[in-house]
């Protein structure tokens, strides 16, 4: 019978021993060596029966299939576009995953998307060599016109969205901005200048207070104070 060496929700550092024994399974940023399980990153341990998971607390974004991300068009290719996701690997958006109509060979692709355009897309495929394919053909995926991008640590993105999207719903309601959050840590916002300013303050607050309890309530109190309106 194995032994767990850490408490649930404890912070661990790389190389820290989490558990001994073959009856535990490492996931997330935990790894097994012989019969011991260690952490690979600084993170929070989650122990769920026999599954030991490490949720990272720092680090850059690593593309994963199925993630919805925000990207910026950096180049126009022969049959698609190159998209910057703010990480080590660029993504490619093929024409067939972006445009509904028939595009003739040699047509000018810039009439659909041009350099500098922002898209809200889904990662359709990631290869072992980290070649990333995107698609715009799913519900809610679109080109984002106007607005601006705020960069945010990707490990804290779940905090911006909140439980059942509670945080993001509140941010939208309180500031009146349009908000799109990409899993890669790009946040696209669009609103009046003072609204955007308030939103960016709130985002900064979430960044600093991420992973503390009652975060939504604290942000709510802050927004109520700033706007003077009561949030339900």
């Amino acid at each position: 019978m194995g032994v767990v060496k850490v408490k649930d929700k404890e912070i661990v550092i790389p190389g820290q021993l989490l558990a001994e024994g073959m009856d535990f399974v490492p996931t997330g940023e935990a790894y097994r060596e012989d019969d011991k399980i260690y952490s690979k990153r600084i993170g929070l341990v989650e122990i769920n029966k026999r599954v030991i998971k490490v949720i990272p607390l720092s680090g850059s974004y690593s593309p994963k299939e199925g993630d919805t991300v925000i990207g910026v068009v950096t180049d126009v290719l022969v049959s698609g576009w190159r998209i910057d996701l703010g990480c080590a690997y660029d993504a490619v958006l093929p024409i067939k995953d972006a445009v509904n109509e028939f595009v003739k060979r040699g047509d000018d692709l810039t009439k659909y998307l041009d350099i500098g355009d922002v898209i809200f897309a889904k990662i359709s495929r990631v290869t072992s060599q980290m070649l990333v394919d995107l698609t715009l053909k799913d519900k809610g995926l679109t080109r984002l016109v106007g607005g601006r991008i705020v960069k945010f640590p990707s490990v804290k993105v779940p905090r911006i969205i909140g439980k059942n999207a509670s945080m993001i719903t509140m941010l939208k309601k309180a500031t009146g901005c349009k908000i799109y959050v990409g899993r890669n840590g790009y946040i696209w916002i669009d609103g009046k200048p003072n609204q955007e300013l308030l939103l960016m303050k709130a985002i900064k607050m979430i960044d600093e207070l991420a992973h503390t309890s009652g975060l939504t309530d604290r942000v709510k109190a802050f927004l109520e104070k700033e706007t003077g309106q009561k949030l339900g």
Partner: peptide, 11 residues
């Protein structure tokens, strides 16, 4: 390196 979140076996 640990602070940057680079996966590491150990320190």
């Amino acid at each position: 390196l640990a602070d940057a979140g680079i996966p590491m076996k150990d320190l």
